[in-house]
Each structure stands twice: as C-alpha cells, then as structure tokens.
C-alpha cells in the first residue's frame, strides 16, 4: 500500500515501509531492517497518544545509539563530511503538552551518511493535545541505517507509518 496521486491514477507515489499498530502501552517502538538508502527521502507520521499527563518528549534514535552526545541539533545544512550548527545533545523530535494526542510528522533522509530528521509542527484534532516541534538533528553513522527507534511513552492505539518516495 502507499499514497497515490488521487483521481483516476492508482499508482502509489510513496512506498509503505512500515505501518505499526501499537496495541499495548509501551516505552519505545523500533522499526528494524529499514536499510535506509543514501539520498532517499523517508516520511514518518505518528499518531501519538502519550501514556502520561503533563509534558513529555519523543526521541528518535538510529541503530540503537542513544548517546546524547552523538546528536547534533543544527541549522539545516550538511556538506561534505562536516555538519555545522549548535550542539544540542539530544535527539528529541517532539513534545506533547498535556496528555492529549498529537500528530508527529517528519522527514528522515540520509545525506552524506548523516541521517537528518526534520520535524514539522503537529497539532491535535482536539484542544487537549498539543505538540511543539521545529528542529532537526544529524548524526553521522558508521554503517548503514538499519534500525530506527521512536522512544516515547506510547499509549495503546497509537500508530506509526513510515514511507519512502518511490
């Protein structure tokens, strides 16, 4: 399955990599065997019901690397083997305020072996949930990106979709 151009066309323009149905409360969701290709664009959408009230964050890790010092939050630029920008030190991609629910949308692409997650703003359909985003980060990887992990307090009913551009 995948997104189509609509109308009479039924040709998918995005290929579905993963569709994860979170059937029970959990602390983390991993997608393995993703094998992200360099310079290919991936889109993720997450329907996030946090399993908590109050402020809570979501993080994105690559290949089980949770070392905060390996993540650089930066202005969107990457060239050659260097990455500019300010070191932030974490891989946070989203924040939810009050236990409502949020749609988290982002782009994950590889550029010169830097996986770059670009978060876009999300807003819940109800007034009870709010998500604040707007930053992105890089991490240089030694090998292929085979596994990505969304670390957050997920409530059952949450969903994660990952697509690549065909």
């Amino acid at each position: 399955m995948g997104f189509t151009t609509g109308g009479s066309s039924s040709t998918p323009i995005f290929k579905e990599i993963a569709s994860v149905n979170i059937t029970s409360n959990c602390d983390s969701v991993s997608i393995e065997n993703v094998n992200l290709a360099n310079d290919e664009i991936y889109f993720f959408t997450i329907l996030w019901y946090p399993n908590t009230t109050g402020l809570t964050n979501m993080y994105l890790y690559v290949n089980d690397d949770t070392e905060a010092t390996n993540y650089l939050r930066q202005n969107f630029s990457a060239s050659g083997s260097s990455v500019g920008g300010n070191r932030s030190g974490d891989a946070q991609i989203a924040r939810c305020d009050d236990g409502g629910y949020s749609l988290v949308q982002g782009v994950l692409t590889l550029c010169n072996n830097y996986p770059i997650a670009i978060s876009t703003s999300g807003r819940a359909a109800t007034e009870s949930g709010m998500c604040r985003m707007g930053h992105y980060w890089c991490r240089k990887v030694a090998g292929n990106v085979t596994k990505i992990t969304f670390s957050a307090k997920f409530k059952a009913g949450s969903r994660i979709w990952l697509y690549s551009k065909k």
Partner: peptide
C-alpha cells in the same frame, strides 16, 4: 520497559522487554 519491534522486511511485529535509562523529563 516494553518495546514494540516492527520488522520492515517481514512486516511482522513483536513485543520485547528491555532496560533503559530514561531521558530527563522536560521542563516547562
């Protein structure tokens, strides 16, 4: 903690237990 693992190759998912160090709670 509990983790859901989705295999993009087989399209199957499983649950596993893991131990982790929680990130610091965000502050207002």
């Amino acid at each position: 903690g509990k983790r859901i693992v989705y295999d993009a190759k087989t399209k199957k998912q499983r649950e596993e237990t893991f131990y982790f160090t929680p990130e610091p709670e965000p502050k207002e």
